[in-house]
Design a protein around this nucleic acid. Structure first.
Lengths: 198, 198
DNA sequence: ACAGTTCTCTACCAATTGGTAGAGAAAGCG
DNA sequence: CGCTTTCTCTACCAATTGGTAGAGAACTGT
């Protein structure tokens, strides 16, 4: 999250934003280099190929999101709905400040299978924990009974979709100012709460 | 939906799939031409530029989805939750058969503003009707009271997200066979029902 | 058979793509 | 000081990009 200072970190940073906003294929090395303010060759010194850069960007992003989620889970209260709310809010903040973050995760499905598989491996422990946790909460009657695998994916899809598609929100007349953001977050939390209450 | 026969329609058809799957920027005219089985120049005869092709593909897709949704609304029962279920099922069928459809709508946010604005104009009447309808149902106490603008966008994000991100589902161990699809659709409908029940 | 559209083709173009080769600063270190 | 490592640069490359020019089929109506 912190904009770091070395050339390598600056490259990672700009590449994250550009890849997430426009898609990996749509962003050229020349463009990244120009925005960072170095020659393209400098990119290729730090990352021997574009694929390599993409992979490092993805790994760093997945890692960053995982850290944010872990922290939110640990800090959150015991009630499952409160906990979900805490996680959503934790993800919402960096996602709104840098919309590219979640957009990047989406780019996964457009990458060669081996790459996306490696990123998926990164996320799997987190997803597994979430699923297991939901299952126990359902057994305890504190969450609506359902298929936890799919519902974790549904919740993810809702949060990611809404955070990365300003166009869809514009269609219904939403605007991205502070008040709009607060309203959006509140509705998102209420939506998930209603969807998961027993 | 029907695979039509003229050269122009074949081009539109393949372009829809390829743009939706890989993103507009990632697909070249040469690639489309090759898959259709014609020379690139034939594409540029029917659509004077790539931008023009993109625009026609988007318009056709938006139109197609709008027709499906309209039909589902008209055929559905009066109860709002049943009606939502009918629409989701109606969208789910073509979306799963051709995942590119919803993926394409997502591409909107990556296009030049004028283009995305024109597509948005196409969708707006539908969204407006949905919002107005939700509002009256809420007033009648048959839907959970909330901000209908945002909740329409949320429901859209959930359906689109889940239908276009097989990767996210793979992470939680989901598989795309017939049984998996049925399970997914059932959970999706239950999720939305729970989220919108008063 | 005719001329006129309608359609698809080959041949080419300038610009951009990811990537290579290797020179030259800059900085640590004896 | 000199030597080595770390870093960034200019110059270039083959391949691919969206797009142009214009020739030739193939089907029209007469």
């Amino acid at each position: 999250m912190a904009r770091r200072s070395g050339t390598r970190d600056q490259i990672l940073d700009r590449a994250t934003d550009l890849f997430g906003r426009w898609g990996v294929e749509a962003v050229s090395l020349d463009q990244i280099a120009q925005e960072v303010g170095v020659a393209k060759q400098t990119l290729l010194y730090w990352f021997p190929s574009k694929d390599d850069l993409v992979e490092h960007v993805l790994a760093a992003t997945a890692e960053e999101l995982a850290v944010v989620v872990e922290a939110a889970i640990r800090a959150a209260p015991d009630d499952p709905l409160d906990r979900i709310e805490a996680v959503v809010k934790a993800v919402f903040r960096p996602a709104v400040r840098r919309p590219a973050l979640l957009g990047l995760i989406r780019e996964m499905s457009r990458l060669p299978p081996e790459t996306s598989e490696r990123v998926a491996t990164h996320m799997r422990p987190l997803a597994d924990r979430a699923v297991a946790w939901m299952r126990t909460e359902m057994d305890a009657g504190r969450l609506r009974r359902c298929d936890p695998d799919i519902v974790v994916a549904l919740a993810y899809a809702t949060v990611t979709g809404i955070a990365t598609e300003p166009e869809a929100l514009r269609v219904v007349g939403w605007s991205a100012d502070t008040a709009g953001l607060r309203r959006l977050r509140a509705e998102l939390v209420a939506f998930l709460r209603a969807a998961l209450t027993p």
